[in-house]
Every structure is written in C-alpha cells, then in structure tokens.
Simulated scan of single mutants.
Amino acid sequence: MTLSIHAPFLPADDLEASLSFYRDILGFEVREEGPNGITVEPPGGQGTTIVLRPPAADPRLTGEERATIAELMAKGCYATILLATRDLIATFDRIQATGADVVQEPLTHPHGVRDCAFRDPAGNLVRIEQR
C-alpha cells in the first residue's frame, strides 16, 4: 500500500486574512472555495493542498471545544505546518518584507536543519525549511 498526504487542515478564524497570507504572501493558488473553507496549493499543483477551515465549521465540536480551540489559536500553539524551499534566505526576506509575523529568523539547528518560522493570521506556526 502506498499513501500520500493530500490535504491537511489548518484552522482559519478569518478566511480572508488567511487566504491573503497563503495566496498573496506565500504565493499559493486557490484550488477551491466553499462555505466551510478554502483549499490552496503551491504553484503548479504539486499534489498536496492545504484546507483553511474555520473551527466553527466542524459540526462535531461543542461550544466549549470551539472556545478551547480559539484560546489555543490566540496563543499561537494550536497548529503547525512545515513548508520547504530551496533558498531559505530569499524566501525569508520576501515574506518578512510583507510585514508577516516573524517567529524565528533563519537559523541552522544543531541537528543540521536550517529553517525559519512565521505565524499566519490565525496564529498557526508556519515553519519553512531549506531542502
């Protein structure tokens, strides 16, 4: 059996602000828009998409669970996504120039990974690793 990652979900309490970040700042393309979320993907449709979805769109959640998620999102510790680039410095500089919320400037970790990090408008941690 061979599996691949198709569409992770990221919470987005303000779809327009999140769409602006992923489309206008990161350069992703809109694949699908609906009342329960927006699907974006890297340019050229590389096979993996991201669904930006308001937590309130999940009918299985109670009001208390929605409040907990909103609290965690506000703290910036609810969701993380790891992206990859070939040129970390150029990518970082371009994103930083837009005024995006920088969490970590480019750095090489002791285990050899070189990355940086931003927060999207919903508070999700967006790590970008050089590959």
Rank of each mutant, 00 (worst) to 15 (best):
T91I: 05
D101F: 12
V113N: 05
D115S: 14
T68P: 00
P8I: 04
L82N: 13
A57K: 09
F28C: 07
I50L: 15
G44Q: 11
D93L: 08
F92W: 06
H111D: 15
L15I: 05
R131Q: 08
L61G: 03
G123D: 03
T48H: 05
P106S: 11
L3I: 09
V40H: 04
H6Q: 12
H111T: 14
V40F: 08
G123V: 05
A84R: 11
V30I: 13
A79E: 06
T2K: 12
L82S: 09
R86E: 11
F92I: 07
I69S: 02
A117Y: 08
R131K: 12
T2Q: 13
L83C: 05
P8M: 06
V126R: 00
A56T: 11
G63W: 02
I81M: 02
M1N: 09
E29M: 02
D14C: 10
T108S: 07
R127E: 03
E33R: 15
P42I: 00
L61D: 01
D101Y: 12
V51C: 04
N36W: 04
H111I: 15
Y78H: 14
R31V: 14
P35K: 13
I25T: 12
D115T: 04
E129Q: 13
P42W: 00
I38V: 15
L72G: 01
A97Y: 08
D24I: 05
T39S: 07
A90Y: 02
V103Y: 11
P121N: 06
F21S: 02
A12D: 07
A117V: 04
D93S: 13
L88Q: 12
A12G: 10
V40A: 02
V30C: 01
M1E: 09
L88V: 10
I5G: 03
P42F: 01
A17T: 06
Y22L: 04
K75W: 09
E105G: 10
R23N: 04
K75D: 10
E64I: 06
T80G: 01
K75V: 06
P106W: 14
A122K: 03
P106Y: 13
E32T: 08
T68L: 12
E16D: 15
G27W: 01
E41F: 03
R23P: 04
F21K: 02
L82G: 13
T39V: 15
P55G: 09
H6D: 10
G37H: 07
A79R: 10
R66A: 06
M1Y: 08
I5L: 15
F21M: 00
N36A: 14
T91H: 01
I69F: 07
G34H: 11
L82V: 14
L19G: 05
R114V: 03
A84M: 10
A117M: 12
T2I: 14
G45L: 03
D14I: 10
I69E: 07
T39Q: 11
G76V: 05
D87S: 13
T68H: 06
I69C: 02
E105K: 15
T49F: 02
R94G: 03
P59Q: 06
V51R: 07
M73C: 08
D87N: 15
A12L: 01
E32I: 04
R66H: 12
I89T: 14
